[in-house]
Design a protein around this nucleic acid. Structure first.
Lengths: 281, 281
DNA sequence: GCTTCACGGTGAAGGGTGTTCACGAAGGTT
DNA sequence: AACCTTCGTGAACACCCTTCACCGTGAAGC
């Protein structure tokens, strides 16, 4: 209807104004402080974050608008760090050895989770995907009273995560032949989700050819298994001694690797995983 | 060993006193009300439970002593219901068809979890096992101020759960031959945990012979995978459409079944699972 | 029978939490 | 200089868990 709005058609603001920069800075500090509290095992509460930064609780509502939103911010930040950590661990093995990278990244993921239980649990509770049964609890909430604009690109933490793993997985699929289900063999609903217009990951799908869907399917399966075992270990549903030994995780990794055609190469890959596991102790 | 115990050496109290009966009754009502709140999607808080029962919050401390303890009670109750549900679903297939029972029970587990998300999440958060990183948060808490005696047999919810599945699994192992790792192949720590004196499940181990440990190991693996996928689905980390279709779960079940030597029989078993899945919709 | 006393409830209070709101003190904008 | 947006504050509300002193009732002991 109306033709212009703030910056938009504007020629003026390629650089953010000083105010905007300050705002962004304190927002980052909020996240930073939240992470610090989490790291120290203290409770992450609006008041705690605020006082830690030297001002009072209501002030945070200029930036966050909600304690749930704050959790979302933290969740994203944590996701980013996990990806960074995985990338750093996988990098030395080189892009020409995607199998090693995959094993290394998965193992790094597991170790990071166990070393940062509180952070991992926060990410887990803050379900970024599928706000379906989130909306259930409080339906028509008008978003914010003091209303800072909702963070753009707020829920893409998982996305980057999936992309990171997905890219490696593609490399593996080109190097290690393993059976990929054809489009016809796949579940119809799954195909529907990932067809253009669905809510799938288009950028990842675009990288793939004809049997791309089958690959995504296998990726999803492997991902479920990895996330499953790590989750169980982190949440204390596995006997602590088994967690310490890492035997169960190793077995699951073996299973995943076998399905990804790495059986012949597994001795080498298992050694890589063990080496990374041994770093924490 | 010794022949008497309930009233111990006592001659007097085979029946609990009227007071005790009342106490037990209201305690059960507390759990009941908690479950009801959970079911209705309302928040489970001491006040809510209390007012729902017609009295005030502090009164609950005569029974529960802690909000965490209340969660523990609820968790146990929920576990019991899950087992009941699984047993009811598996029962029709008869003890002479443990594979069908296993598939049925696993599928029932998944369906129950998806139909009772809040309850499932409560159980999941209330880690009954390994109070290790629970103790971290508040170490030397003196337990209670008004101190009702801590519930005996409070943490055995998981135990019954594992026993239920374990028993079926044993039946499967006798009927469907599949490779079982020998004691030598197993991880040392795993063996250590389950040797006499370890913190394993002695009653289940006693039911098994020489390769019992290998069986437990495989059971643990299968269990991790099942719990993993269900957890992911319940916590909204799988795209909702995939959850609805159940394709991922079905694939995982297939995987588990294959490892348990059910490959040849899978058409029949998959049909059973599908039938149970179809009941909810 | 009466006394005693533990049990099971209450209201008040203290210390948390998230959240809203009216109010100002700045700072940038015009 | 006069605006006006931004951002912080203090007070207040509602809710949470938890503790405590206080009683009434009902069971147990003499």
């Amino acid at each position: 209807m109306s033709q212009v709005d703030p910056g938009r058609v504007g020629q003026k603001r390629p650089v953010r104004s000083r105010r905007e920069r300050l705002r962004q800075s304190t927002l980052e500090e909020i996240v930073e402080v939240g992470r610090a509290l989490l790291r120290e095992g203290r409770e992450v509460t609006l008041r705690a974050v605020a006082t830690e930064m030297g001002f009072t609780a209501p002030a945070l509502y200029r930036y966050v608008g909600n304690v749930a939103a704050l959790n979302g911010l933290l969740s994203n930040n944590i996701f980013a760090e996990i990806v960074r950590e995985m990338a750093a661990t996988a990098e030395p093995y080189g892009d020409d050895d995607p199998a090693a990278q995959m094993v290394a990244a998965a193992t790094a993921f597991r170790c990071w989770a166990l070393d940062h239980i509180d952070e991992f649990q926060l990410v887990f509770h803050t379900n970024s995907l599928s706000g379906e049964h989130v909306a259930r609890s409080k339906a028509g909430k008008p978003l914010h009273p003091l209303a800072p604009p909702p963070q753009e690109g707020a829920a893409d933490g998982v996305q980057k995560f999936a992309d990171f793993f997905g890219r490696i997985f593609i490399g593996v699929s080109q190097q290690y032949p393993f059976p990929v289900p054809s489009r016809a063999e796949l579940d119809d609903d799954f195909v529907a989700v990932h067809s253009p217009g669905g809510s799938g990951k288009p950028d990842l799908a675009r990288l793939l050819g004809a049997d791309g869907l089958g690959l995504i399917w296998l990726f999803e399966l492997a991902w479920a298994q990895l996330y499953g075992i790590v989750t169980l270990e982190v949440f204390g549903h596995i006997r602590p001694q088994l967690v310490r030994s890492g035997a169960l995780f190793t077995a699951v990794m073996h299973e995943i690797g076998r399905r990804a055609g790495m059986a012949d190469d597994w001795d080498r890959l298992a050694a890589i995983s063990q080496e990374i596991l041994a770093r924490r102790a």
